[in-house]
């Protein structure tokens, strides 16, 4: 499958680029190659250092820059020990540059805030495409249930620029392309009228992930832009090859931001409901199991509370809801 798909993707993105898949990284020859490469680099590095002592200051600065480049190449090699050819064109230092595409079949059951009786007990089936493409720091993405560990809990479809990235922190300036949210959780997501833009900081730790999102900008909000902010944290555990995760988050929306009704769409009279700011909370638990290096089985339960202001705007007494489901994902 990969043999068919990779050339196809390659031709779609650009004839000049190759995609390197981690599924290929298991080849033991790659490990040997990596060691060999590092050994060679080490020898070169030693010679380089001796040579440096006899060089002028100007040359020294040039070499230092070169050394930094070598260090970066070595760091990259640790992750990308599959090389199609020896020549590696280094676009920049951004470790988030790359490509992710996941296709998921999702079945869910649970509540739906947007139905009059709030109860959506029949099973829903969705086909979700989640992706993130980043090149030279510029990205476009559409998060899904299968890509929580890449996109975070409150991410929405967006484009933007990843202006800072190191081994742990990633900072994005982004603008939403849709307010729809992600497939599988539509019924319990707090939607709003207008798209927003802002700043997002995501910390990727060994077994956890912290994300702060702050959006002060909205081009088509009714009056002032308002402020929306969220804080979410996710933690992963492993038992054998099963992976368990728990995500919790809190979300703030200021008074100026208008909510969205899925039944009615946005209507002017809804504005009166936005009489105060509001805070909602989220929690998810789930598990994932890798069937192969491409196929992943997953299951989840998601819980959301509605903010006070949304509760006030409703004619029923609904204050929270849940969704549970299963998903089967193919990761390219």
């Amino acid at each position: 499958m990969k043999n068919i798909v990779q050339p196809l993707l390659t031709s779609l993105v650009s004839a000049s680029f190759l995609l390197t898949s981690p599924a290929l990284l298991a080849d033991p020859h790659n490990e040997k190659h990596e060691k060999h490469e590092k050994h060679e680099k080490h020898e070169k590095h030693e010679k380089h250092e001796k040579h440096e002592k006899h060089e002028k200051h100007e040359k020294h600065e040039k070499d230092a820059k070169h050394q930094k480049h070598d260090k970066h190449k070595e760091d990259k090699t640790a992750d990308e020990h599959e090389h199609d050819l020896d020549i590696d064109f280094d676009f920049d230092d951004n470790p988030r540059d790359g490509f992710y595409l996941g296709l998921s079949a999702i079945t869910t059951s649970g509540d739906d805030f947007y139905l009059s009786d709030h109860d959506d007990s029949k099973a829903d089936f969705d086909f979700d495409v989640s992706y993130r493409v980043q090149f030279l720091g510029l990205f476009v993405e559409s998060p899904g249930l299968s890509s929580r560990r890449l996109h975070g809990l409150y991410a929405t479809p967006a484009w933007g620029i990843n202006f800072f990235s190191n081994d742990i922190w990633s900072l994005d300036l982004f603008y939403e392309t849709s307010t729809k949210g992600i497939d599988g959780l539509e019924g319990i997501q707090n939607r709003r009228k207008a798209k927003r833009g802002g700043l997002r900081a995501t910390g990727y730790f060994d077994n956890s992930q912290l994300q702060v999102v702050f959006t002060p900008y909205s081009p088509d909000n009714a009056e002032s832009d308002g402020i929306e902010a969220s804080l979410s944290y996710g933690h992963n555990w492993q038992f054998k090859n099963w992976n368990y995760y728990a995500n919790v988050g809190v979300h703030y929306r200021s008074e100026e931001i208008l909510d969205y009704s899925l039944e009615q769409g946005y209507i002017q009279t809804n504005e009166e409901y936005s009489s105060s700011d509001g805070i909602s909370t989220s929690a998810e638990i789930g598990l994932e199991y890798p069937l192969t290096s491409d196929w992943v089985f997953g299951s989840f339960v998601a819980y959301r509370t509605l903010s006070d202001r949304v509760e006030d705007s409703r004619t029923d007494d609904v204050s929270d809801g849940y969704k549970a489901g299963f998903l089967l994902t193919y990761v390219f």
């Binding site: 000049s16 680029f17 190759l18 995609l19 390197t20 898949s21 981690p22 599924a23 990284l25 298991a26 080849d27 033991p28 990259k76 992750d79 990308e80 199609d84 050819l85 020549i87 590696d88 064109f89 676009f91 470790p95 988030r96 540059d97 790359g98 490509f99 992710y100 993130r132 980043q134 090149f135 560990r149 890449l150 081994d167 742990i168 990633s170 995501t202 990727y204 730790f205 060994d206 992930q209 890798p290 290096s293 491409d294 992943v296 990761v331 390219f332």
Partner: peptide
Amino acid sequence: AEVKMAWVHKKKGKPRMSWRMF
């Protein structure tokens, strides 16, 4: 004979595939 290690996702939120130029 060798049992090879493989994985689905790269660690720390890095993309699964990286750009490469030839």
